[in-house]
Design a protein around this nucleic acid. Structure first.
Length: 486
RNA sequence: GCCUCCGUUGUGUAGUGGCCUAGCACACCGCCCUCUCAAGGCGGCGACACCGGUUCGAAUCCGGUCGGAGGUGCCA
C-alpha cells in the first residue's frame, strides 16, 4: 500500500507556522515512504473567503520545498482538490447516511437553536443538539422539503457505548459516545459540507492512508470514525501532532504578528533555517544533530519520535539557526542577499559592498538588522564628546583628543593608492608605538570618531577603508572639533 | 462545568527500572582571543511539578493532587 498524506489548509490569506510544520511532517512522512503528498484546499466556509489566499499557500509550500504530487494547480487522479469545487460530491453520501439512519434532515433555525441552547445553559446544563428533528415523520420532512424550508443534515450520533481508536503519537484513545458524540452538522444550509464531513469524504475518496493534523482533532476523531464505519470505509491511520505554542499558555497566534511564515521572511529569516527549526519543534532525531536539509529530514524523520507535549516556538533559537545558516553560506550568496538591505541606507553611496559583506556576514543574525548596523557609513551620526567616555577601553574625551591628533597626520600621509587595511594598520601601529601609546584605546578612539558610535562591525582600519581617505579625514576633523568644544 | 491530552533546567529536548552525582543545543553569566562589536575557544549557572505507593533500586511503573493545553460551532 502506498502511503498518501495530505495537507489541507483553509485559505485564510496567511500561512501559519503551525500549518507549515504540519505540512512539513506530512511531506516528510510521505516521501520517506516513497508515497504521495497531496494538497487540498478546504474552503467550505464561504464567509471566510479571501481572494488570493491559495496563492499564498502555493508560494509558501514551494518556497519551503514541500512540493505536492497532486493538488489544485497540477491536478491528479482524484480531483478536484478544492472542496468548493467538489460541492456536488458530498450530498449523495449525506443522503446515503440518511437512508441508513446515520443522518437526518434538520429544519431548526439558528434562532430556535440559540433559544434552546440558552434555556439549557441557564438551567446549568450542557447544550448538545436535542435530536429535535430526528423525530419528524416522513411526510413532515417531505412537506418542508417541498416548501423549500432551509435545512441542514445532521449526523445521528449514538448516545451510548464507547469508541476507541489508536493514534500513532498519543496511543490508545477511548471516549464515551455520550460525551464525545453529538449530532454535528454534515451539510450546511448553503449546501456546503462542514469540515467535519468533507474531511472524511475527501480523505477516503483521495485515498489518504495517514491523517496528520493538529491534536485539537483528538477528541472529534470518534465522530469521524463513526462516519467511516457508517459508510463502510476503512479508517486511516491517525497521527495527531502536538500544538506549536507562543509561550506556555498561548498558541502562536495572528495577534502577535509572529505567527505567519511571511512575517519571518519579511524580517530577513531564511526559509531553510525556518524549516529546519520548525522540524525540531515537537520532533527530534534521537541524537545530537540539529542541522538538516530537507532531504536529510526525509531520511531522519520518524513519527515514533514525535512529542506528545506542546512545543514553544523559541524565536531566540530560530535566530541562532538563522545566524548559523548565514555564517555557513558562501560569501557570494551573502553579498547577494545582503545587497538590498545595504541599499536601503547606502544606496547611491560609494561603498565597497563586497568588503562590507565580509565584515557583516558573521555579524548578521537576521537581515532586517543590517540597515541599522551599516547606516553610520552613509551618514556620520550626530554625537557629543561623551561618545569617547569609555572606561572599559580606558578612553576619556581627553585621551581621545590625543589619539585623534596622533592618527590624523599618519592617515593624511598615506597616499590614496595605498589606502588599504594592511597599510593603515601597520602605519598606525608604528606611530602609536613610537608615541609610547597603547594600541587598543587609540584605535578604538579612531573607530568611534569615524563611526560616530561605540560599536561597529569591523575595526578602525576597516571603517577607514570603507569610508575612503577623504571621508575618513573629514570625520576625523569632526571628531577633533567635538572634543575641542567639549 | 464536562471530556481528552500533556507535565525533565528560562526554551527545545535526550532519557523506555540500575550506564543519571540526569546528556545536548539555544538563552544567560564569566574567562580567553581580539583595533570596538561580533565570530571562535574554554568554563559556569540551571530541571525530573507535588504527594503517596510498587521495587533491592524510579525521571522512567501505579494512584492521587496541582498546573497547563485542547475540545465542547451551520470555523477549520
Amino acid at each position: 500500500m502506498t502511503v498518501r498524506t495530505r495537507f489541507a489548509p483553509s485559505p485564510t490569506g496567511f500561512m501559519h507556522l503551525g500549518g507549515v510544520r504540519t505540512a512539513l511532517y506530512a511531506y516528510l512522512f510521505a516521501k520517506q515512504n516513497n508515497g504521495q503528498f497531496i494538497l487540498r484546499i478546504e474552503d467550505t466556509d464561504q464567509e471566510r473567503y479571501v481572494p488570493g489566499a491559495t496563492e499564498v499557500i502555493y508560494d509558501t509550500l514551494r518556497a519551503c520545498g514541500l512540493n505536492w504530487d497532486e493538488g489544485p494547480d497540477i491536478g491528479g487522479p482524484v480531483g478536484p482538490y478544492v472542496q468548493s469545487e467538489r460541492k456536488a460530491t458530498y450530498m449523495p453520501y449525506a443522503k446515503q447516511l440518511i437512508a441508513s439512519g446515520h443522518a437526518y434532515y434538520c429544519f431548526c433555525t439558528k434562532e430556535e437553536l440559540e433559544a434552546r441552547r440558552e434555556a439549557v445553559e441557564a438551567a446549568g446544563g450542557t447544550w448538545k443538539y436535542d435530536k429535535h428533528c430526528l423525530h419528524l415523520s416522513q411526510e413532515e420532512i417531505q412537506a418542508k422539503l417541498d416548501a423549500g424550508v432551509p435545512y441542514t443534515i445532521r449526523m445521528n450520533a449514538p448516545t451510548e457505548g464507547e469508541t476507541s481508536y489508536h493514534d500513532t503519537v498519543f496511543g490508545d484513545m477511548t471516549f464515551q459516545n455520550s460525551e464525545a458524540m453529538d449530532d454535528m452538522v454534515l451539510i450546511k444550509q448553503d449546501g456546503m459540507p462542514t469540515y467535519n464531513f468533507a474531511n472524511v469524504i475527501d480523505d477516503h475518496l483521495m485515498g489518504i492512508t495517514h491523517v496528520m493534523r493538529g491534536m485539537e482533532y483528538l477528541s472529534s476523531t470518534p465522530r469521524y470514525n463513526y462516519l467511516y464505519n457508517a459508510l463502510g470505509w476503512e479508517i486511516p491511520t491517525y497521527i495527531h501532532l502536538p500544538t506549536v505554542m507562543r509561550d506556555a499558555t498561548h498558541k502562536l497566534s495572528k495577534r502577535d504578528g509572529d505567527a505567519f511564515y511571511s512575517d519571518f521572511i519579511d524580517k530577513g529569516y531564511l526559509t531553510e533555517a525556518l524549516v529546519n527549526y520548525l522540524a525540531l519543534v515537537g520532533w527530534n532525531p534521537g541524537d545530537d544533530r540539529e542541522f538538516f536539509t530537507l532531504p536529510e529530514l526525509v531520511e531522519a524523520f520518524d513519527v515514533n519520535r514525535l512529542s506528545k507535549s506542546p512545543g514553544i516556538f523559541d524565536v531566540d533559537k530560530l535566530r541562532w539557526f538563522n545566524a548559523e545558516y548565514i555564517r555557513r553560506m558562501s560569501p557570494e550568496r551573502y553579498l547577494e542577499l545582503a545587497t538590498p538591505w545595504f541599499d536601503q541606507v547606502l544606496g547611491g553611496k560609494n561603498i565597497d559592498y563586497r568588503r562590507l559583506a565580509e565584515l557583516m556576514q558573521k555579524r548578521t543574525e537576521i537581515f532586517s538588522q543590517v540597515p541599522d548596523m551599516v547606516r553610520f557609513l552613509a551618514e556620520l551620526p550626530d554625537y557629543t564628546a561623551e561618545l569617547f567616555d569609555n572606561p572599559k577601553m580606558k578612553v576619556t574625551p581627553a585621551s581621545a583628543a590625543e589619539a585623534l591628533a596622533l592618527c590624523g597626520p599618519v592617515l593624511e600621509a598615506v597616499p590614496e593608492g595605498e589606502w588599504n587595511g594592511e597599510v593603515l594598520y601597520d602605519r598606525l601601529n608604528e606611530a602609536i608605538a613610537a608615541a609610547g601609546q597603547k594600541k587598543r584605546p587609540v584605535l578604538w578612539s579612531l573607530a568611534a570618531a569615524l563611526a560616530g558610535q561605540q560599536n561597529t562591525p569591523g575595526g578602525a582600519t576597516d571603517i577607514a577603508c570603507l569610508l575612503g581617505k577623504a571621508e575618513t579625514l573629514r570625520r576625523l576633523g569632526v571628531g577633533a572639533n567635538r572634543l575641542q568644544n567639549a
